[in-house]
Design a protein around this nucleic acid. Structure first.
Lengths: 341, 341
DNA sequence: CCTCCTCGTGGAATCGATTACATCCCTGCG
DNA sequence: CGCAGGGATGTAATCGATTCCACGAGGAGG
């Protein structure tokens, strides 16, 4: 592969001049510029990004470590992150942690070794020593969706509290009184926050949230299935389960179906995170939708602000309830937004 | 960030010795090795992958350019690719082409500039000049899922012909005679092959495939919707539509639902690519399942073989029919595999 | 006891870019 | 006509690693 030296030789100039032409430096004669450009075209020369990065100490690359690529929510997030990054002149390397802290560390280490300019993380746990070190060392970082409490890193996320309150209102209106939740890992902020929001909303209606109605999941489908089976085996099973993410809702659906029971008649279901498939499941699933694309874009903007020396801001956007049929018919005629499809 | 020089200074040895220790070169005294390791630990030193790559001309990185990250099939593919690559000591940079040739070129160029060791591509079109040049220049490359005819690049893919035949047998057995297909872009191999396999299978039953029953889609949900509406507007609408990928099937479902019609009574539906959600849609969707994980792993192995100087092999694995309820009840009692859930 | 290897080690070149600094030439002004 | 200033260009240092080569010390064999 042709290098800058080959171009210089072919154009009859020095490498410095070639570099100047390529970087738009003003003081280059029209003649030299022309010859260089011709040589570049003739040789099909492309600058070696590796060499450039070594010299400039910039890779124009962002790292994105997400909890689970198979989760459509994170897929959409990754997509919007890449789009916005591309628009700002950055590439993105995605690391999939699969909800496993040691895999998350693997990716963080790998990305750091590659000298990415900044890191976007949706932490799988409360923060490994590695991650804490990276923050302390000043690695530009932004948390997205989930975060690690107690560290000074901007956070871009959705606030689901109002939507959870709307959901509980909706459920209460439909006559449900025994509400259960499939929680995410307590080590994640989204895992614990969603339970707290749910508990607070229930309290407003004087409803309890007994321990037996809090199932411990791990944001994966299998745990949703297991927890739901546990709920159904209870002497007094809940009327509704609220899954803290879409994959656990899928697992819950599996479990209900495997028992030959029906949603919402035997057990109602709602989920955090809305995805296109929820429109077409049997029945369509009532869910809390996050502004996923906007979160991804805002996260990139914050990170690039930090990288380029501006002051990044934390961003919190509201989530909203999308009522479908999985909690009972007909939906209460309320000001709450209805699904359009 | 500490460099190899800092380590050398702190250990009281030369950079050459540090490098030898780090790379497991044999001729280093136990004493020196110990001092170097201590210095590495004390400084928290991590080798700069950028510098190393410049010198060794290897990045230990694979590029993966896929057609659409939002398509669960490709997400699963990406995941298995990353897993296998990691197991073999490589990282993966994913580029999402969004079914747009110019975006595909953007990513190929970007990956080439970063001097990735090899490229895994699921081409969105018949091959841009850029891609053809890269192949000619000897870039290690492997096609996965889709490929470009006429070039000497190993292909890892699933053969769906037998499964399509099984599907047509199933449909015929249920009494369907007017079968239509939502095709993918003709410029992609999977786009045209699936139509051909469908046409061939229909011919075995003496059924025609009129042009009006071939809808041109682009593998995205919206096109599935549009094409399905066209079918429904026909003076003689089809009994069944077969969508060439899962997203167009989703669009078809949307279209049917928007008209207040029902699957399978008013229009039966089958899809190429099986995904977890198809179990829970209303009704569960009959689909052709590819061995996605195995495809991803085989593709990585082929590419790494090529990179490390061994001879890569093309791989073709069979797809299989998974019967559910979207084409009618009850499924014919046939030797064909039934969905277990 | 001398020579020859081998082992451990350091010095320095190298990968492909960017960029500070030096140089040269030309123009404009006093 | 001479000198200052600025534009165009080249030389060389630099980024952080790897690796070839040379060198010194020490052990083995004659």
């Amino acid at each position: 592969m042709a290098s800058i030296k080959d171009v210089a030789a072919s154009a009859g100039v020095s490498v410095a001049t070639v570099s100047r032409v390529l970087n738009g430096h003003p003081s280059v004669s029209a003649d030299a510029r022309e010859r260089v450009l011709a040589a570049v075209a003739a040789l099909g020369y492309r600058p070696n990004a590796v060499a450039r990065s070594l010299r400039t100490d910039q890779t124009h690359t962002l790292g994105l470590v997400i909890s689970d690529v198979l989760n459509p929510y994170f897929t959409e997030l990754a997509r919007s992150v890449e789009e916005e990054a591309r628009a700002l002149g950055y590439s993105v390397i995605i690391g999939n942690a699969d909800e496993r802290p040691e895999l998350q560390d693997h990716h963080v280490r790998n990305l750091l070794d590659r000298r990415i300019d900044g890191l976007l993380v949706s932490p799988t746990d409360g923060g490994s020593p590695l991650m804490l070190d990276a923050i302390r060392a000043g690695t530009p970082m932004v948390f997205v969706d989930r975060w690690i409490p107690g560290v000074d890193v901007p956070v871009v996320r959705a606030d689901g509290r109002a939507a959870v309150r709307d959901l509980v209102a909706h459920l209460y209106g439909l006559g449900h009184r025994r509400l259960a939740i499939i929680a995410g890992p307590a080590a994640t902020t989204t895992g614990s926050e969603r339970v707290e929001a749910f508990r607070a909303a229930l309290a407003e209606y004087g409803l309890p949230l007994p321990d037996a109605y809090i199932g411990q999941g791990d944001f994966q489908a299998e745990s949703g299935r297991r927890v739901t089976e546990g709920f159904l085996d209870l002497p007094e099973p809940p009327d509704v389960v609220f899954a803290a993410d879409n994959l656990m809702a899928l697992g819950a659906l599996d479990a209900v179906r495997a028992r030959g029971l029906r949603v919402p008649d035997d057990l109602a279901l709602a989920a955090f995170d809305d995805i296109p498939w929820f429109v077409h499941t049997d029945p369509p699933v009532t869910a809390i939708a996050q502004p996923t694309g906007e979160l991804g874009r805002a996260a990139v903007r914050a990170l690039v602000d930090r990288i380029e020396g501006r002051t990044p801001r934390s961003v919190t956007l509201p989530a909203r309830l999308v009522v479908r049929r999985s909690c009972g018919e007909p939906p209460t005629p309320s000001p709450v937004q209805r699904s359009t499809t």
